[in-house]
Design a protein around this nucleic acid. Structure first.
Lengths: 207, 207
DNA sequence: CATTTTTCTAACCATATAATTAAACTATTT
DNA sequence: AAATAGTTTAATTATATGGTTAGAAAAATG
């Protein structure tokens, strides 16, 4: 009888997942310890194996969730209609908000992919395969119609993403560099919701 | 008698360090194994402890070297004279070259700092402390004299660095996204030596 | 309320890993 | 050439860590 019961389970499994996220996001696959996850979830170590069988499985659950949070909105950007200016504004505002709420995810994901590039195929390929084609066409159209300065669409895409994501990856350095506490840092990111689109639009608009 | 001898040491210590770099850069502090480093150096595991006492020490030697490689040129940028356009071009060209030659370093350094932010004080503080002040003044001067569009100097600094470093951190994703092999990827980076300064200068120049 | 199923715990196991040690080997010094 | 100092190896140790097991406790079922 696979059924949910009152006192246990839902909470336990969710608590494990929450603790696993906290630990994996901070320490990564290799640095994370099953014991630490169990402690943070307030349960016995054996429960981790009862619910997720092994470390690899638990990690995959955490990683899959992270990839979805960060990449779903990239597709939204690429599907979006309207002028290129509007697209940029929408994407950046949306994406910085995601950064603010999930500041741990970019370093976590990128680190795991760099240390284990074959994870790309497992988790990203379906997401990445069709993505850039439409956007590249859109940019090429705009440049050929002389609406924006000529630019390699690949540069354009990487530039936008760099500007949004990099501060999340370099958070401790940025804070140190400009003497920010966490609050100031968030403030800095929020300001970038306006300044990045300005920066980009200025750079591609015809004079 | 602390003296160097013919048959041993210099080579051994350097071979250890070289192997340690290779392994730490790819796997990070937690993922790296002393055995793997020993194997890659073609020596016995005990030699690692003979020369570097423990894993922590070996790691620090590798990390210190990485930080220097990546950060020395940031200071050069900040000291550089000349117009802001020239500074930008010099910095970006220089920095992309460093990226091409040390593509593993940015993900390595940033990951270690994110997983262990207290390393910042140990390795970076002396480098970071005085750095941004001069550059910020320079940018503020340019804006106040109406030579460039008004921009938060902190945004300006982070934007340049983002555009240079991010592709190195996202290398596997970029390659997958645009169907690049390693050669094409390097080509892509080399092109950015021209396109990034154009992008930045366009975005800040007065119309 | 007896039985079955699910959830949970404490103790244990096997292995991997960093670190140590004792002794052999090589070079340098006198 | 003998003595000393420095380098390397193989074997061993201590511990950390992922994973297992047997069985108790709790909940669901009929």
């Amino acid at each position: 009888m696979v059924r949910k019961m009152d006192k246990y389970d839902i909470n336990t499994e969710e608590r494990i997942l929450k603790a696993a996220k906290s630990v994996f996001h901070r320490k990564g696959m290799y640095g994370a310890r099953m014991q630490e996850i169990a402690d943070e979830a307030g349960i016995n170590k054996a429960m981790l194996h009862y619910y997720f069988r092994n470390k690899e499985n638990l990690f995959k659950a955490v990683f899959r969730d992270a990839v979805e949070k960060i990449f779903i909105n990239v597709s939204k950007f690429l599907e979006s209609e309207g002028t290129i200016d509007e697209s940029i504004k929408n994407f950046v505002e949306n994406y910085i908000d995601i950064m603010i709420e999930n500041i741990y995810l970019p370093p976590f994901i990128l680190n795991e992919i760099n240390q284990n590039p074959e994870k790309l195929s497992e988790f990203f390929k379906p997401l990445l395969e069709s993505l850039p084609v439409q956007l590249i066409k859109k940019i090429l159209k705009e440049t050929s119609e002389n609406k924006i300065k000529p630019i390699d669409p690949r540069d354009f895409i990487i530039n936008i993403i760099s500007l949004c994501i990099f501060p999340a990856i370099a958070k401790p350095i940025v804070k140190e560099l400009f003497n920010m506490d966490d609050e100031k840092f968030i403030e800095f990111l929020k300001n970038r919701k306006k300044s990045i689109p300005e920066f980009i639009i200025n750079s591609i608009k015809l004079t």
